[in-house]
Amino acid sequence: MLSSIDLNKLTPGFSDPVQDSRQTFRAVLDAMAHPGRIVIIDNFFSPPPPLNLASAAICLALLDFETTFWTEDLKAKAPGTGWLRFHCGCSVIQNPLEADFALITSPDIMPALNEFNIGNDENPEFSTTLIIQAGRLSATKGKRLTGPGIETFSTFNVEGLTNRFWQDRQSQSAIFPLGVDIIFTCENRLAALPRTTKVEG
């Protein structure tokens, strides 16, 4: 167990835990079902830095005592980590390979995708779900996405990612159905890139 959390400086999470979790879950579901679609989290609270609202809401809705969590700043007393441990009760782990969920707040220096859990042949769903905080999310121009959940194709642009990230993502298509699912967040917006989506451009 990590050291105790400094509770005096914590801010509240969802004002209505049940309803807000359900709405957030629905938003993530929508985003995952329609890769590249930008979905808005219609909620307001003040998560501590470096968490943005969408990342914080996703964590509150999806993490609990039984999910393992990795993030770059593993110091137990880091405001974001302490906040998540308090609200979700999740265990923060050192090794991204064992994480159910990973939060990346500095995508320019993030680990390679194969440093996370890609699942195994029997249980591909055991893979890590990545929540990546991006500089900007837009659906106007950029990458061309095709695959399940997209009728013809959609366009999608994320700022702040390196070329290496996209190369990693490309090489994951060879190991399907293994691989990681990714949720990009920016302020109160999110978009998903599940492993089934083909990225071009």
Binding site: L7, L10, T11, P12, G13, F14, S15, D16, P17, V18, F86, H87
Partner: peptide
């Protein structure tokens, strides 16, 4: 008082 974590 204010809630940091509402009853759950």
């Amino acid at each position: 008082y204010k809630h940091l974590h509402k009853p759950e």
